[in-house]
Design a protein around this nucleic acid. Structure first.
Lengths: 241, 241
DNA sequence: AACTATAATTGGTTGAACCATTGATTTCAA
DNA sequence: TTGAAATCAATGGTTCAACCAATTATAGTT
C-alpha cells in the first residue's frame, strides 16, 4: 500500500443521475424511506431535482437494477421501495460466474465451506416449522426421483439448501446460499443433469442431525456429501471440456 | 411448493432496454465480448438495436450499475467491458446492510464462519508473496497503532482479511470477504473506532500458522479472534443503541 | 521539437411529444 | 340496484432532435 493512496481520492466528476441516486440512497439509509413507500411520479421528481425526465429515469433505472426500487406502470404505478431481497447481490455473483471469473472448482469449493457452516448453524436455530419444510422437501425430491424427473429433482434439491440457509437465520448466509445455488443451477445445466443416489441418503442423515440439533454431525454430513458431489460434478465438467 | 409453480412463468412484458441488456449479456456469457472490448458509440448502437438513444442509454446504465460496463467520455471514450471485479455483488450486500436487512449480529457471525474457512484455505495455498504481503500488512498495522492512528489501523486491518482471502485463491470467497469488510467498515464507523489489543497478538499467531501451513490451527485462531471481536463490537453496539 | 489552438468524437443532459398499460370512474342497460 | 361496458386519468416506456462538456487527435505555430 503506497502512502499516497490514502491521501488522494479521485476527483469526482459526478454525473447528475449519480447525485440523485445518492440522495435517494441516503434517505433509505436513514429510514426516511421504507419498503413499500412510493416516490413521486417521474415528472414531479424531475422537477424537484431540477433535471430532465430522461436524467431522472437513468437514476431510477440504476436504483432498480441495484434492487432498491421497483417500477410499476399504470394509474396506481410509480417507483416503490423494494423489500431488501438480495437479488442484486445474487445477480452480481452470477455475473462473475458467467464471465468466467468464478470457475466450477471455485463454486464447488465455496459450496463445501459455506454449506457445512450453514448446516451447523441451522441445527442450533431450526424451528419445528423449518424441520417440517425440510422433511417435505426431501419427500418431494424422492417423489421426483421416482418419477424420473431429473430437472424437478434438481430444483427441489437447490431449494433444500435455500431452506436450510433460512433455518440458519442469517441473511448474509441466505443471500450467499441463494447465489451459490443460482450459479450451481447454471453449472449443472451446462454439464447435464445426472442422478446421484448418495444425495438422498445423505438428506435423511442430515434431517436426523437437525432433529437432534447435532450441529457438528450435520456439518460433517453436509461436507462429506458436497465433497462427493464436487468430485462428481468436476469429473463431468472435465469430460465435457 | 405447489405443482403449478413449476409450470407457469410470469408473462414477460419485456421492456426494450431489457432486451438490449439481455443480448449484450449473452455475448458476454459466450465470450463474444471480453474484458477491455469497446462497444460501438451510443448513436450507432441505438441504430443497430432500432431504439432511441435514450432507451439504449438506459440499457447501458443498467449494465454499468451491474458492474459489467464502464463508460468513458471523450474522443477515445465509449462503453468498455469491465474486468469482472465483483463490485456489484459487494454493493448489493452493502445495500442490504444499509437497509437493515442485515444486522450487526448477522454480520459478525458471518465473519466468524467465513473468516475461519478462509484462513484454513489460505494456509494450504498461500505463496511466499502472499506471506510477505500479509507480514507487511501486520507491520503497517502495528505502525499505525504506535502512531495512534485508529482510522488507518482499521483500514489496514480490513486489508488483512482481503489479502488473506486472495491467498485462499477462491474468487467467491474473495468477493464475500470484500463485502463483509465493506459492511464492517460502515458498522465500525457507526460505533466508533476502538483499539483492541488482542487483534495484533492474534495476527502474529496467524502468520505463524500460515508459515507452517497449519490450516486447522489458523482456522481456530481466526475464529477465536473474531469471536472476541464480535463480543466487543456487539457490546459497543448495544451501548450505542 | 515542443507548445498551442482547433477540430472531432463521445458520453451527458435537455425538453417536448407521443405510446401503452393500468386502475378508477362513469355510463347505461337489465 | 346491479353489473358490465365504455371512458378517463395517471404513470411509466419510448422517441426525436438538439445542445453541452469532457477528452483526445490533429494541424499549425514558434
Amino acid at each position: 500500500m503506497r502512502a499516497a493512496s490514502a491521501s488522494f481520492r479521485p476527483v469526482a466528476t459526478r454525473r447528475a443521475f449519480e447525485e440523485i441516486t445518492s440522495q435517494i440512497r441516503g434517505r433509505l439509509a436513514r429510514q426516511a424511506l421504507r419498503a413499500g413507500d412510493r416516490l413521486p411520479p417521474e415528472r414531479e421528481l424531475a422537477g424537484q431535482f431540477h433535471v430532465s425526465r430522461n436524467t431522472l429515469r437513468e437514476a431510477l433505472r440504476s436504483l432498480e437494477i441495484a434492487g432498491l426500487l421497483e417500477l410499476r406502470k399504470g394509474a396506481t404505478g410509480g417507483a416503490f421501495i423494494k423489500e431488501g431481497g438480495g437479488a442484486a447481490a445474487v445477480a452480481g455473483l452470477a455475473d462473475l460466474y458467467h464471465l468466467g471469473a468464478i470457475q466450477p472448482q471455485h463454486l464447488t469449493e465455496a459450496r463445501i465451506v459455506i454449506g457445512a457452516e450453514v448446516a451447523r448453524l441451522a441445527c442450533t436455530r431450526r424451528t419445528k416449522e423449518d424441520l417440517e419444510a425440510l422433511a417435505a422437501n426431501v419427500a418431494a425430491a424422492e417423489a421426483a426421483t421416482l418419477r424420473g424427473d431429473v430437472v424437478q429433482r434438481a430444483h427441489v434439491n437447490y431449494e433444500f439448501h435455500r431452506l436450510l440457509a433460512r433455518a440458519a437465520r442469517n441473511p448474509v448466509l441466505i443471500v450467499i446460499t441463494d447465489a451459490l445455488m443460482e450459479m450451481t443451477r447454471h453449472f449443472v445445466e451446462s454439464i447435464g443433469y445426472m442422478p446421484n443416489r448418495y444425495v438422498m441418503s445423505s438428506r435423511h442423515r442430515l434431517i436426523a442431525c437437525l432433529r437432534a440439533k447435532d450441529g457438528a454431525a450435520a456439518a460433517k454430513e453436509m461436507e462429506g456429501m458436497l465433497r462427493r458431489l464436487q468430485r462428481f460434478h468436476l469429473a463431468a465438467y472435465g469430460r465435457r471440456k
